[in-house]
Amino acid sequence: MSEFTAPGILPCQSIEALIDQGAISSAGPWDTDQVQPASLDLRLGARAWRVRASFLPRRGTVRQRIAEVAMHELDLTKGAVLERGCVYIAELQERLKLPKGISARANPKSSTGRVDVFVRLLSDFGDAFDDVNEGYEGPIYMEVAPQTFSVLVRTGTRLNQLRLKTGEPPRLRTESVGVDLTGEIAGFRGRRHAGVVDLDHVDGHDPRDFWEPLYPRDGQLLLDPGEFYILASKGAVEIPVMEAAEMTPIDPSVGEFRVHYAGFFDPGFGTDEAHGKGSKGVLEVRSHETPFILEDGQTVARLVYEPLTEKPSRLYGDLGSHYQRQGLKLSKHFRVWGE
């Protein structure tokens, strides 16, 4: 991998170079589509543990802390159901030996956030979720906490992704993201007592068993406390080929809700060059303790753009994508509404 002269997000060819150098290794063979334009999909390993509580391993290893809080162990090689309302720690197949100057940050994959599964990355002696320090060497783990649906996972299931970077990439710009409440269906609300979602079964679930369609009234939507919603952005989202973006929650003073668990947008999303012009951002919204009336066009999140160190050799959608050119869309696990 060549030396970088400026801070930035590493593109796919640089991630592949790190793999070739052994800076990123795996317990099993790599999947052919695992490296995305500016991120690396991470895969569940062989074991997970049901734990009493979430934790940060600030003064020890993740395995040491698991021994203190584990309730029982699950064998993921045979598949296991992770129950909603419970917290699990899973080992990942990937292991890191980051060179000096390279750090990383993780985020849930889009499909994970859209089924309201809260995931966070853990590293040994880490004092923050999702962030991996420069030069870190060791295993990585994932906290998994299904919120609305219980989910079926197995060894190899991909729930989060890793973005690698040099230095501290500058914020190129920040854009406000509004919500669209003008469609015939404004969004979907998760059914709390639905069945299990198999996270490796694409197009394998009837959405009517898991979701309730929502119809706007006068461009407004009432968010009920504790409920989970899928909505769409008012405008299209476009990520230039030399940039990547992360969608971040708004300041709590603007509204009593959280938007977007899955925050990474790879270069090429929504662009003409990648045949995705007009793609919208899908918003994963969870209301807090107070009912809140959301209005059409209201700002609900912000997109923060950062530079890549160089142009990626492939763009979002080149390996196939369920979400390029999307409008209001449920996760890939569900058939298209109405079909």
Rank of each mutant, 00 (worst) to 15 (best):
T5S: 07
A6Q: 09
I9V: 05
C12P: 00
Q13V: 01
S14F: 01
L18Y: 02
G28M: 04
Q34E: 13
A38L: 03
S39R: 03
V51H: 15
V51E: 14
A53W: 05
A53M: 12
F55R: 08
R58A: 15
R63I: 12
I66A: 09
M71V: 08
Q93E: 15
R95N: 07
L96I: 09
K97W: 01
P99E: 05
A104M: 12
N107V: 13
P108H: 07
S110A: 14
T112M: 10
V119M: 03
V119W: 02
S123F: 08
D127F: 11
D131C: 04
D131T: 11
N133A: 15
G135Y: 05
E137L: 02
P139A: 13
M142I: 14
T148C: 13
T155S: 10
T155G: 00
G156V: 07
R163C: 15
K165D: 08
K165S: 14
G167L: 10
E168I: 08
L172H: 03
L181R: 09
G183E: 14
I185V: 15
R191P: 03
R191W: 12
G195D: 00
V197N: 10
D203C: 00
G204D: 08
P207N: 09
R208I: 05
F210N: 07
W211A: 04
P216R: 14
L222E: 14
G226D: 06
F228S: 11
Y229A: 10
A232Q: 15
P240Q: 04
V241K: 07
M247N: 05
T248Y: 10
I250C: 14
V254P: 00
G263W: 04
G263C: 14
G268I: 02
D272I: 11
H275R: 04
G276Q: 02
G278W: 02
G278M: 07
H288M: 13
E289Q: 11
T290C: 11
E295I: 11
D296V: 07
G297E: 10
Q298F: 04
A301F: 13
R302K: 13
Y305N: 00
Y305M: 06
R314E: 10
G320W: 06
K329P: 00
F334K: 07
E339D: 08
E339V: 01
